[in-house]
Write a protein that binds this DNA or RNA. Structure first.
Length: 100
DNA sequence: AGTCGAGCGCGCA
DNA sequence: TGCGCGCTCGACT
């Protein structure tokens, strides 16, 4: 099982209306390769199945989506799932945060 | 406080 | 081979 596949696995498990962070994922994989987590999501082979928009920075800001940084579409998607974004940050970030 | 540098795993040149 | 990335953290101003 490759590192990136594990990352994708975890992403798939994020329930609707919840988010998680790169840090948490990396921690779950027992590694400090936080950057690699972002890279893995970028290079995922199943872009449709993987809800990578639910993965964000540990400070509550958004990170990137679909290969780009600061993607407005990511905000839309999260909004649709019931997560509010303000000032490029997740509102009530702690409450929406999904812990595995 | 704000800034800087290093560490990780993998993809791409 | 070598570099850079959807990041984080600790050390230094």
């Amino acid at each position: 099982m490759k590192f990136n596949e594990k990352v994708l696995e975890l992403c798939k498990k994020i329930p609707r209306g919840r988010v998680t962070t790169y840090k948490i994922i990396a921690g779950k994989l027992k590694t400090k390769a936080y950057r690699a987590v972002g890279t893995a999501l970028k290079n995922n082979n199943q872009p449709i199945i993987i809800p990578c928009h639910r993965v964000i920075n540990s400070n509550g800001s958004l990170g990137g989506y679909q290969g780009k940084l600061s993607n407005p579409n990511k905000i839309e998607l999260l909004n649709k799932e019931g997560i509010e974004i303000k000032n490029d940050k997740i509102v009530e970030f702690e409450k929406c945060l999904h812990r595995y």
